[in-house]
Design a protein around this nucleic acid. Structure first.
Lengths: 131, 131
DNA sequence: GATAGGACTTCCCGTAACTGGAGGGTCAAG
DNA sequence: CTTGACCCTCCAGTTACGGGAAGTCCTATC
């Protein structure tokens, strides 16, 4: 399979697939013409990485997950630990965004948003005590 | 004021302040010794940027907000538009994270996390249809 | 067989917003 | 005069790719 077909089948851009090879996530064979020759296992690995990435796992986490995926005898606890760690990070990120959202939303609500120059948003950002 | 004092007063690392100068967010004067000499206005600008960044505004959004901050006659509507746009992006990001969280949480819940090798998380990522 | 077009290759630069570190000048105290 | 804290500039690295150039290869058509 050439890279183009792998790209359409996995939904990953060819550029990304080449990058994943460069950093060692896949090791496709090479044809006599220098083209990458992907087999079924490569396809699975790439799809696996694609799904993990879409769940927000970093590349290094994907690498760890792939290693566990390759190891038929790993304990599921190892996998669960990684996933739970990532879940905690997602929760932390959501909490952070919600806090930002709350503050910003207050400022936006307080701002008339008309032609007058007075603006509570800028005042809030400038550190002026709000009345 | 030297950069160290500005750093403690704004809470921004000195490195970050130099970076903000490099990209033109502040233009502190220079002393005869080559040291940056910040005045009160520089301090306010940096604190302003610090707060805007902590609300998740990008540097370019901060630049736009600063320009509006400098323009005593701008309409508050201009500011509000930027803030609302950013608010929408925060909401989108939160929604994305929640979707990721939901999927990942299902996988984590399904995984026993013990010493056995069977792992629904890896199965889910590999694209296997879940039973 | 010539040619046109896709598809493939490598290589290098750019992104956002910094952070770390090297190597070196400056200032105040003792 | 030396020590240590502070300041300076410049370079490299971070994450996870994307854009684009320059060149090779494959396939179809004339």
């Amino acid at each position: 399979m050439n890279i183009g077909e792998v790209s359409t089948r996995t939904g990953l851009p060819a550029k990304t697939i080449r990058y994943y090879e460069e950093i060692g996530l896949v090791r496709p064979a090479r044809g006599a013409n220098g083209y990458r020759a992907f087999d079924q296992a490569d396809l699975y690995r790439l799809a696996f990485v694609g799904r993990a990435r879409s769940l927000g796992f970093t590349i290094e986490e994907c690498r760890a997950l792939l290693a566990l995926y390759d190891d038929r005898d790993r304990a599921s606890g190892d996998v669960k630990r990684i996933a739970q760690g990532h879940l905690a990070q997602i929760d932390a990120k959501i909490a952070e965004l919600r806090a930002m959202r709350a503050t910003l939303s207050d400022l936006v609500t307080a701002c008339a948003g008309d032609d007058r120059p007075d603006c509570p948003i800028l005042k809030g950002l400038s550190g002026e005590p709000n009345s």
